[in-house]
Each structure stands twice: as structure tokens, then as C-alpha cells.
């Protein structure tokens, strides 16, 4: 039955998803072309245009999250919920399928965005995830071949995946929780109230994540201060000193930071997902 529900959801969303993805692909290609023209003929105006275009292309990612999370809301919490929640499946299946579909679509959109940006002009490093990755890790990957490079790349990709998943689940979490709070404390059920509660929750979440990310960055800065102070004598160096002062240990540092992102974003995503699931299973009343 769950597979059938999945089939239904795919059937229902495919047109929209396809539309947004192709919008992103086209815009990314255009951005790439504008950016390479800007570079070749050194046109600052064209560079600015390319930045705006790339932001527009990136909006597609936000759009997908909003549309998919909006679907989740309208299918379960509006009149259609009467139909959906009496289907012979568990309430949690609706959540699982929507989250799966939403996150996969987001991954695809990110991949489209970054490859499109990068594939037009491989020399251009300013645009897109691909460019960023290339700029920071391009040299690194050529210098440290083998397991070290592999482990780092995998960890960084996983970290990005965790951040994206977290980002999507936050939408679902905020929608469900604000809807739950509104109906639980019998506030007049209005979309506006849900919207305001949603925005508030979303901002609280953003602030929390921002604080945690900042903390990670602080640690990272601390570990990088060998560039400022130079190397200590090798005989009394600890493991932390090894990380701090040894350029050879750079990849370990990257793995650790990626790991931190995975843990922080992953755990919050799981907590939010479970909260939504238990609301759907044990609290949801339409």
C-alpha cells in the first residue's frame, strides 16, 4: 500500500518538480554563459548579472522545499486530509513518503545546479557548489590522492547532504508543529496564525543552527591559527598541535568538521522527524 502511495505522490508532483528542475537547469546554464563572457571580456556589469542569475537559479532549491512542504500541509491538514488520512496506510507513511520525495528532489536540484554551473566554464570558480568545491578542494585532491582524498570528499558530501535534509525537514517540522500548537490550544484556526507561528519557529530554528555553525567555525579558526603563530617545537607536540600546526593533518581536520556538521544537522533532523512522526501518529486530529 505504501508503494502505491509513493506512486501516487510521484504522479502528482512530477510535473511541478520537472518544471522547477528544468527552470534551474536553464538558468544555471545561462548564468554559466554570462559568467564566462564576463570573465573573458572583463565586464564587471556582466559579473553582477551572473551573480543575480545564479541567485535566481538557487531560488529553485528554496522553491522545491516550499512546494513540497506546502503539499504536505495541504494534503494532510486541509479538506483533502479527510481523504488522505482515511486511506488504508499509517499516518506516518504520508510523512515518510513526502520527506523521501522532497529530500531526493532537493538533492537532484543541488546536483543539477552545481554541475550546470561548473560544466559551462571549468575555469570559473566563482559560481555554484561545484566551483566552491573546486576552489577549496581542487588542489587538495590533487596533492593528497588515495584514501585521504576519498574520505574527505565523502565526508564533505555527506555533510552537505545532512544540511539539505535538515533544511527540508525543518519546513515539515515547523508546519506540523505550528499547526499542532494552533489546534491543541484551540487558537482560532486560521492560516495566518499558522503562518506566524511557523515563521517564529523557523527563525528560532535558524538562530539555533546559526549559533551551532558559528561554534564549529570558531573551533575551526582556532585550529587554523598555526598560520598566524608558526609551528611549535616538534618534540612536545600533542594531537591537537598536530592538527593545528601540521599541514599534513589538514585532511583530518576537514573530516572532523564535516563529521561535526553531519552530527549536528543529522541529529536535529532526526529529532524533528521523530517529533513530527509522533504528532502524526498520536496527536493528529482533523
Amino acid at each position: 500500500m505504501k508503494n502505491k502511495l509513493m506512486k501516487l505522490e510521484i504522479r502528482e508532483n512530477r510535473k511541478l518538480i520537472f518544471f522547477i528542475l528544468s527552470y534551474m537547469a536553464v538558468l544555471s546554464v545561462v548564468t554559466g554563459i554570462v559568467a564566462s563572457i564576463a570573465e573573458k571580456f572583463s565586464l564587471p556589469a556582466a559579473t553582477e548579472l551572473a551573480v543575480v542569475l545564479s541567485l535566481c537559479a538557487m531560488m529553485g532549491i528554496l522553491l522545491i522545499a516550499i512546494v513540497m512542504a506546502g503539499r504536505f500541509y495541504s494534503l494532510l491538514f486541509t479538506e483533502e486530509g479527510l481523504l488522505r488520512l482515511t486511506l488504508p496506510v499509517k499516518n506516518r507513511d504520508h510523512l515518510q513518503i513526502n520527506v523521501k520525495l522532497g529530500i531526493i528532489t532537493l538533492y537532484v536540484s543541488v546536483i543539477i545546479y552545481s554541475t550546470m554551473m561548473g560544466s559551462i566554464d571549468s575555469e570559473n570558480t566563482a559560481f555554484g557548489l561545484y566551483g566552491v568545491m573546486k576552489e577549496y578542494y581542487g588542489n587538495f585532491v590533487t596533492e593528497y590522492v588515495g584514501m585521504k582524498a576519498f574520505a574527505t570528499t565523502i565526508c564533505i558530501i555527506l555533510a552537505i547532504a545532512a544540511v539539505i535534509a535538515n533544511y527540508y525537514i525543518t519546513f515539515i517540522f515547523v508546519l506540523t508543529l505550528s499547526r499542532y500548537i494552533v489546534s491543541r490550544y484551540s487558537v482560532v484556526q486560521k492560516k495566518g496564525v499558522i503562518f506566524i507561528a511557523g515563521i517564529t519557529l523557523f527563525n528560532i530554528h535558524l538562530l539555533m543552527m546559526w549559533a551551532i555553525t558559528n561554534l564549529i567555525e570558531e573551533i575551526e579558526a582556532d585550529l587554523s591559527h598555526f598560520q598566524l603563530y608558526g609551528f611549535p617545537p616538534a618534540e612536545n607536540a600533542t594531537f591537537m598541535d598536530f592538527l593545528r600546526y601540521n599541514p599534513e593533518g589538514e585532511w583530518v581536520k576537514d573530516v572532523i568538521f564535516a563529521g561535526m556538521y553531519i552530527i549536528v544537522y543529522g541529529i536535529t533532523a532526526v529529532i524533528m522527524y521523530r517529533t513530527v512522526r509522533s504528532i502524526l501518529d498520536r496527536k493528529l486530529e482533523v
Binding site: T78, E79, E80, L82, L83, P88, V89
Partner: peptide, 14 residues
Amino acid sequence: KAIVSYSPDRLAFK
């Protein structure tokens, strides 16, 4: 739910 066929008190379709 698989053996109950339910028609709600209002229209359940958009």
C-alpha cells in the same frame, strides 16, 4: 480503513 468507505461531511477534494 481498508474495509470502511467514508464520505465526509464536506467536499474532500480541491
